[in-house]
């Protein structure tokens, strides 16, 4: 199963977005980890949104993740890094129970969102998934119009009024920085967009259900550097309102966008802390090796 999660570093050239010429290209691989804008003091004092206490996940007999204990704080970006097959995607997908799609899996320990154990039998999956939105590795818009893609979630929640839906569409597209590019072609198929636009559309779609937490499973791995920089920019903007958990293979990306970083290895949580601490002063040898590129 872990092969599925494996990220082949995507170098696929995605269609260049037509509008990129208007903006100066940003240096996307800038190494400086200076993005921890939320001061650690504030985060520490606020109540964690997601608490994981000795959480384990098994694919049949194989271990996905084991004994994960970590708190994820609100209005901040938490990055999960680690080598392939270390269970970072498994853990991420456990948070909104997307792993339920895979047969013969079971869990141990406690994984709670807002104090509610999500693996409890009484949990309403629909509510959970609306509370915890998800953006996937590959852009996966529905083969419908841009408009229909975004209103899919709100319609599920029972929003029927045309004007309300229109407002949601505009708001979400503005939030995901896509409005300017697609406002005149909302009735066009989403598949006609470029890869980067599609991914931002997926983010907009996830935002439309008004989630508290946004899970991002390597959201940039299928995108080119330009599109990646735009998504990262977007993540910066979004963390003001949302709690974001992002899995990434790209350590520079983790350093750029996240406030906290956790390092997974072989299904276990090796290190978890403020990003600047983890990257500049890792306490664990394995983390250091991984970050400096000696291992992984």
């Amino acid at each position: 199963m872990s092969e599925q999660m494996t990220n082949i570093e995507q170098t696929t050239v995605v269609e260049t977005e037509p509008d990129t010429c208007c903006e100066p290209l940003k240096p996307t691989l800038a190494p400086a980890p200076q993005c921890a804008k939320v001061s650690p003091e504030i985060s520490e004092t606020s109540q964690p949104v997601i608490t994981s206490d000795k959480f384990c996940f098994y694919y049949g007999k194989a271990v996905g993740v084991k004994d994960i204990s970590m708190d994820i704080y609100p209005k901040a970006v938490t990055a999960i890094i680690g080598p392939s097959g270390c269970g970072k995607s498994t853990f991420l997908r456990s948070i909104n129970r997307m792993n339920d799609l895979i047969p013969h899996t079971h869990t141990g320990g406690v994984l709670a969102v807002n104090g509610q154990d999500i693996y409890d039998k009484r949990v309403n999956l629909v509510n959970l998934r609306q509370q915890v939105g998800m953006v996937f590795q590959r852009p996966n818009p529905f083969p419908k119009t841009i408009y229909d893609n975004i209103v899919y979630g709100p319609r599920l929640q029972g929003v029927r009024s045309r004007s309300k839906l229109d407002a949601i569409v505009e708001q979400c597209l503005r939030d995901s920085a896509l409005w300017g590019e697609v406002k005149d072609e909302l009735k066009k198929s989403a598949l006609a967009l470029s890869g980067g636009q599609q991914q931002r559309l997926c983010i907009a779609r996830a935002l439309a259900t008004k989630p508290e937490v946004l899970l991002m499973d390597e959201p940039c791995s299928a995108l080119d550097p330009v599109a990646t920089s735009r998504i990262e920019e977007l993540i910066h903007k979004l963390k003001v309102d949302y709690t974001i958990v992002i899995v990434t293979h790209n350590m520079q990306q983790a350093a750029r966008v996240s406030d906290r970083t956790s390092f997974f290895c072989l299904g276990e949580l090796i290190e978890y802390g403020l990003t600047k601490d983890v990257f500049t002063n890792p306490t664990n040898r394995q983390t250091e090796d991984y970050i400096t590129g000696r291992f992984g």
Partner: peptide, 15 residues
């Protein structure tokens, strides 16, 4: 039908 479509829909809270 790609699994990603299904994932996307389920991820949005659809049954």
């Amino acid at each position: 039908v790609p699994l990603t479509y299904k994932e996307a829909s389920l991820g949005l809270g659809a049954g």
